[in-house]
Design a binder for these strands. Sequence first.
DNA 1: CAATCAACCTGGGTGC
DNA 2: TGCACCCAGGTTGATT
Length: 291
Amino acid sequence: MPEMPEVETIVQALKRRIVGETVADVVVEWPRSIALLSPAEFSRRVVGRSVTRVTRRGKFTIIRLAPPKLLVVHLGMTGRLLIDEATEPNATAGASQDAYTRVAIRFVSGKALRFRDVRKFGRIYLVDGACEIPLLRDLGPEPLSDTFRPQTLRELLRRHRRQIKPLLLDQRILAGLGNIYVDESLWQAGIHPRTLSRALSTDEANGLYRAIRKVLRQAIQNRGTTIRDYRDPQDEPGENQGALSVYRLEGQECRRCGHVICRTIVAGRSTHYCPACQPLQSTNYAMTADR
DNA sequence: CAATCAACCTGGGTGC
DNA sequence: TGCACCCAGGTTGATT
């Protein structure tokens, strides 16, 4: 569910609200939400540590603790990180927890960081370094970093013989894009999702570079896209859903050319595009019948 | 190497 | 109301 702009929004909020807090207590309601460690071991190692900074890498939220340790969260499809403000000293603990809270980290101040995850695909890790988490270790470049240049993308596209959509969804190639922003970026760039990455011209690759950055920046500015589940740490939805051009808009008219937006399956994922704005060149041979 | 699909989970929406 | 079926912002591992 949450892609990079949603995670970025969450991280900005957590920075303001939990840096400096010290962990008093951990409640694990669903043990499998904790990766690698037993709930007891996880709790034992987290209690007493304090939060020194909060950062992001791809779709991972990274909470740095002292003494040094990384609390890393991947939200999966429906994960949320919610801040519960301190309640009255003798309010009943746990009373505010809903049925989908999987882990609650309570701070000495009375505030709490709550991991809520309906579908249970999210994971929380406690590690010494990013290298202990395979996906985090192998993450591709950050699309909004200064060191990610048009040439960086051109080289990535040239290195593989794959359809562009699954390539962009692959976190080892580029970090942070998910189903929404890949569809939006490809529409913005006028590229069909099944186009072979190696068949893209220099101009098309440069256009895709600009499209990805524009789409992500706008989504961050709009505090993320809420289709259904996404909420920031204060339980507020994002506002980017109104800025989408194709995602989940099948049957509606393309805002650029007026043709009807199509939905199909690519890489096993629902895929939205405008067949007029995003034509599939015959030279880029699609393996499967289109649409 | 690349594509597909099932699996991990739960709930919401739709059609009969 | 009930029920079957499809769908969902992700990732992984087996299979073709």
